[in-house]
Design a protein around this nucleic acid. Structure first.
Lengths: 151, 151
DNA sequence: GCAAATTTAATGTACCTACATTTAATGTTG
DNA sequence: CAACATTAAATGTAGGTACATTAAATTTGC
């Protein structure tokens, strides 16, 4: 759907301004769908992202600093996201023996199992389904344009 | 900068998955810069967006329902954003005489003045500066691709 | 004309972001 | 080695998102 119609704004100051609003609006649109899908599994998007990073490290532990480095939103509060995952027994937290300031965070069997479930559920990935409306060539084009914005 | 480097992930499951992460990451990247710019004026991004909608209506009032219809994030809580703007005397709230369930929200002179200040400040729009790294043709291409994702 | 349904905003709650401050452990340096 | 600086994570606080519930005004239908 055209952005003009979605936010009831018939014109934009410039194509650049429309593109800015479009990136922000589309990210929100995708994020909302993704969040609704994760909700069925009792997870939020940031919680899912942290779990994925921990699975990528498994069986090695991660520290909070490593999570921040790899997270999409680097200013989010990794400590408190780990709190929630720990409450749900999806991760464990132990003081790092080599550096007692750091904390070793590990995904549990329950966490791995939950991620496997989500992976198998086609419905759990509306973002992928949405992006598949573009051809691979278009996806590449989009990636190139977005990287250029942040250059 | 390449997304791979920004989130320290050497490869992605698919071009589509990378494109999804890229849209979300880029929106966050732009949003953070924009928020930092607004902060100099004591505003958050949602507060600025509401003020802009109110200026668009001025001198007519807007209702909360109209704000929601035009906001980028339609599930955000317009009532509470208006609360903050009212505290700062940038908007007024009066019961709508024609329909006492509704509330007439209007931008004040102080609100208009603040928006004019921001408009005049080139630095206050890092998002525009970022999008200007793309040619107009590329901006159009980006808009087309994003609209297609949400189709 | 009045009871029930609907509409409009406000409020409550859980979680998140942004950013400053605090706490504890470790490094560094005279 | 003691004082100071730095590092790693946790915590505090203000504001926002998502979604459910509530409260009041209005509309609808008998």
């Amino acid at each position: 759907m055209r952005l003009e119609d979605e936010i009831k704004q018939p014109t934009f100051k410039s194509e650049a301004h429309k593109a800015y609003l479009n990136v922000v609006y589309t990210a929100g649109w995708l994020g909302q769908r993704q969040a609704a899908a994760f909700k069925l599994y009792g997870l939020t998007s940031p919680q899912f992202n942290v779990l994925r990073i921990l699975r990528g490290q498994h069986p090695l532990p991660a520290t909070v600093a490593l999570l921040i480095e790899r997270m999409l939103d680097k200013t989010s509060n990794a400590s408190r996201i780990v709190d929630k995952l720990e409450e749900k027994k999806l991760v464990t937290r132990t003081v790092c023996p080599a550096n007692r300031r750091a904390v070793d965070i590990r995904i549990t069997e329950a966490g791995l199992h939950l991620l496997r479930q989500i992976d198998e559920d086609e419905q759990a990935n509306p973002a992928r389904n949405s992006l598949d409306k573009l051809s691979v060539a278009e996806q590449r084009q989009l990636n190139t344009l977005l990287d250029k914005i942040r250059a």
